[in-house]
Design a protein around this nucleic acid. Structure first.
Lengths: 274, 274
DNA sequence: CTAGTATATCTTGCATACCAGATAATCAAG
DNA sequence: CTTGATTATCTGGTATGCAAGATATACTAG
């Protein structure tokens, strides 16, 4: 799961606008575009701009820790790498800057950002608050069909775990949580979670790959799905909470192993408590 | 509250990097920038780029409903208005597009976005989930000093309400909720709330200005502050929830009065339930 | 050898120019 | 009058060029 949290708000015109009949001006003058009139012109629009592609690639490389914190980002170099000009690269870099994935020092340089320590507990709190709420709603609303889709996703995850493909597994993990958001009736909130989730994703990739963590996640997902199927909102929320709490494991140890990857904007000790 | 939800991730270099002493190359060649080495170079940096200014202005005008949904955004026109080129304007527009405040139809035009109906309940759910959690934590952590700051903000709100200044009042409202996030120990999560909050802000500006709504909000804020002061987490969360639930009022009525301002991506009826 | 200064050369921010695609006005045909 | 094709013209996406500021190296003075 690497893609952009939100694809933006682009779409294709679908309906012709109404002509304004009376215009005596002999000069051919294009009238102001009247804008989208039709309903539901939301178009996920396979159309992808160059900037989008560059953004996604860089986002992927940064979150997967291919590009390590501190690495310089040369706009010019990226441009040639993608055989494009600086403009779309700059667009992508600016998006990454707003997501705190890169830091840009004006007139100096751009670098892959270190992870602010504060982002880790914040991500935890936010995810718990939102996802526990969503999963509880999902438990009350789930239809058999939806539950089957959930089971299917879990099964994909089991296969990915068996084949040891971390990347593939991560995708199913995202899909699982996104599907719960969808079942709960608020699919749009998943992209909110995606935003806060990013720092923890980067973090996860620097912890030693623990062998059976994937299988453990699969069984936790099953527990959540079971609770949803039973319609047990409280239990579902509790499962989700303990599932998310697993993110805390190895935190301190990992930070000690890669101290140069973090920004110490909060006290290290505050990570221990709670 | 109109400012950008997040200022980005820009900062000034503060520490000189270490020189690499051995470089026999007689040609003057500037070595790659070594990037930020010092800790905590986060610099809110009064420095504001042209694009930032344009973004903030447009953001303000859109959320305050000065620019109504459907209004065309002419990059060229905006550029001349701000006496700048298209480049920074484009930057600003792209940011607005990602926040769903404008829709850009490639090669056709850019328009102030209509409000997706789905965004309203989503904002409610997200805010309840996050802010109820935060206020409960705040209730457990609040120090007398923090509570005084909260009271001060409430008082500012009361004055703004008395003078009937909606804009001023909105600022204090944002400040109140932001302060609670700060007290809870997760100030960064307020910007998350700001994101989902935007559509409801636009919505609020098209409902007839109800006379005493501001005073009512003040007393609700007081109730929340009281609960926090007593350290009653449960009561605080409940107060916050009912406070946020007030956003639902007049929903359907307002939508009927301005049907052209919305995108009907979900069923109207689904707004009634719950 | 050390410390401070000067300068070459990099960087990002902004301005301008160009292009393909989309729209609206006009025209032609039924 | 309606419908479809034509074309001028506008739009956003991209490429390129210039300027101000920041850094690393070379240089100078002690």
């Amino acid at each position: 799961m690497a893609g952009s949290p939100e694809t933006g708000f682009q779409g294709k015109r679908s309906l012709k606008a109404i002509m304004s009949p009376s215009d005596e001006n002999p000069r051919r003058k294009r009238a102001a575009n009247t804008g989208p009139k039709g309903l539901g012109h939301f178009d996920p629009s396979g159309r992808q701009t160059l900037a989008d592609q560059i953004y996604e690639q860089l986002h992927h490389e940064i979150t997967q820790l291919v590009l390590k914190p501190g690495t310089p980002i040369l706009e010019r170099e990226i441009a040639t790498r993608f055989d494009a000009s600086r403009t779309p690269v700059r667009e992508a870099v600016l998006r990454l800057a707003r997501e705190m994935l890169v830091e840009v020092l004006p007139k100096s340089g751009t670098f892959v950002a270190r992870i602010p320590l504060s982002a880790l507990p914040e991500a935890l709190v936010a995810r718990r608050a939102i996802e526990c709420d969503l999963v509880a709603r999902a438990a009350k609303l789930a239809s058999p069909a939806k539950i089957l889709r959930l089971r299917a996703i879990i099964e994909e995850g089991r296969e990915a775990a068996a084949s040891g493909s971390q990347a593939e597994f991560d995708k199913t993990d995202s899909a699982f949580h996104a599907e719960i958001a969808a079942i709960s009736g608020y699919p749009g909130l998943w992209k909110l979670v995606l935003q806060v989730k990013t720092p923890t994703d980067r973090f996860r990739h620097m912890v030693l790959p623990v062998a059976d963590r994937m299988q453990q996640v699969v069984s936790e997902h099953e527990g959540i799905a079971d609770a949803i199927e039973r319609g047990d909102a409280v239990e579902a929320a509790e499962c989700m909470e303990s599932h998310l709490n697993q993110l805390k494991t190895d935190t301190l140890h990992t930070i000690e192993r890669h101290p140069e990857y973090f920004v110490y904007d909060i006290d290290l000790d505050s990570l221990k408590c709670e």
